[in-house]
Every structure is written in structure tokens, then in C-alpha cells.
């Protein structure tokens, strides 16, 4: 007997929906936290946490709707984004000893204000889409879109390579969340493909980090930009 079988029977907004909304709120909060975070190690931990929340929300959707393939996605998320990638990132940071504070290109309060503006835009943009979506989780599309944009903003405002990569991964988290909430997830093939892409991207970035550091003795991509300017 399924111990959670009573969940969808609750009146009003189903309990599962409430839980998913809660997860979405935590995702958004974490996205802002990452935007504001200066320390790399904490940034990676926040990223892992975001992955965990994503995994949880996917699992809840899977449970409440009976979409069995979502269990698979949740498992992939857990393995890849909560365990493997943060572990690789931690190892990289340790090896490259770049644990110090992250320098941002703009100051953090300005970035946060821009981020709030982005969330407003994202909600406005998502409104017509969520009216079409017939899923119980449709209210969260706006939040998912906001997560994607905030991660993108983080990539723009950081000058070091590692936070940019974390931003890239976090963008993928937002995308995944959007897919789950709008259509109960993408087809399994696409999800696997995306997951593989992220993994390969991570490996490439890893090689890339070592190369930059060997050449410039720093992971600051501004050195790279100067190099291209000289040529």
C-alpha cells in the first residue's frame, strides 16, 4: 500500500501542488542566493542544493501523477547534479586552489535589483504559456523561467571561469524544471541527451580550466580577453 496515496485526495489546491510550489519558491530563492554569493565553495554547495530541490520536485510530480518515466529523470538529476557534478567541481576547485572570494563585474546589490526586474519579466512572459499548460504544476513555469534568466545573469556578471560554469549548469537546472512543470518532463531521450551534454561540457570545461591556469597562472577570463585583443 502506497503510504502517500492520500496526497491527491486533499481538497483545494492538491497537497502535491502545494509541495511543488514550495519547491519552486526554494529554487527561486536559491537562484538569488547564488547570484549574491561571493565564495566559490558555497556557490557549489548552493548549486548542489538546487539540484536536490529539483530532484525532490520531480519526484513529487512523478508520485502524484503516476508518470513513471519522471522517476528516471529524478534519478538522473540526483546522480548527476547533486552528487557527480558538485563533486567534480569541488575537486577542481581544490586542485586549482581557487577557493577565495569571487570577483563580480557589477556590485551585488545592482545585480539583485536587475534580477528582480528579470523575475517580473519572466512571470509576465510565462502567463500566457501557463494558461495553455494542463498540468498541476503550471503555476511554476514563471519561476522556472526566472531561474534560467537569473543563472544567465550570473554567467554575465562573473569574471572567473568556475562561477560561469556553475551558472551554466544552474541554467540547465532551470530549463529542466520548466520542462517538468510545463509538460511533465521532456521525452526520456532528450533528457538523457541533455544530461550527457552537461557532463561532457563539464569535462571540457575542466580541461579548459587547467589550460587557462597553465597559460596565465589564474582562472580569470579577463586574461583570455586581453590575449584575444593583442591578436
Amino acid at each position: 500500500m502506497n503510504p502517500l496515496a492520500w496526497l491527491p485526495t486533499l481538497p483545494g489546491l492538491p497537497f502535491a501542488g502545494q509541495l511543488i510550489n514550495l519547491c519552486a519558491a526554494i529554487m527561486l530563492l536559491l537562484a538569488f542566493a547564488m547570484l549574491a554569493q561571493r565564495r566559490i565553495v558555497t556557490l557549489i554547495n548552493l548549486f548542489a542544493l538546487q539540484g536536490a530541490v529539483l530532484c525532490l520536485s520531480t519526484a513529487i510530480v512523478a508520485l502524484s501523477t503516476g508518470q513513471s518515466h519522471l522517476w528516471g529523470s529524478a534519478l538522473i538529476t540526483l546522480l548527476l547534479k547533486v552528487i557527480l557534478l558538485p563533486w567534480i567541481l569541488h575537486r577542481l576547485v581544490h586542485k586549482l586552489s581557487v577557493k577565495w572570494d569571487v570577483e563580480t563585474l557589477f556590485n551585488i546589490p545592482t545585480t539583485m535589483l536587475v534580477g528582480i526586474g528579470l523575475v517580473i519579466i519572466a512571470f509576465n512572459v510565462a502567463q500566457p504559456i501557463s494558461e495553455f499548460a494542463g498540468t498541476i504544476t503550471r503555476a511554476t513555469i514563471g519561476i522556472a523561467l526566472a531561474c534560467v534568466m537569473l543563472a544567465f545573469l550570473m554567467m554575465i556578471t562573473r569574471s572567473k571561469a568556475v562561477p560561469q560554469v556553475v551558472g551554466f549548469m544552474s541554467m540547465e537546472n532551470g530549463l529542466f524544471f520548466a520542462a517538468t512543470s510545463a509538460t511533465y518532463g521532456m521525452p526520456m531521450v532528450i533528457e538523457l541527451g541533455v544530461a550527457l551534454d552537461v557532463l561532457v561540457g563539464m569535462v571540457v570545461f575542466g580541461v579548459f580550466f587547467f589550460q587557462i591556469r597553465e597559460k596565465f597562472d589564474s582562472l580569470d577570463i579577463r586574461h583570455l580577453e586581453e590575449k584575444t585583443k593583442q591578436e
Binding site: L105, M149, F152, L153, M155, I156, T157, S159, Q164, I221, R222, L224, E225, T228, K229
Partner: peptide
């Protein structure tokens, strides 16, 4: 411009 942040800004 040869700066990654600017290129990211374009796509954003």
C-alpha cells in the same frame, strides 16, 4: 569586443 561577458549579454 573579445569579452565573454559581452557575448553572453548579446545572447541574453
Amino acid at each position: 569586443r573579445g569579452r565573454i561577458a559581452i557575448y553572453l549579454l548579446y545572447s541574453f
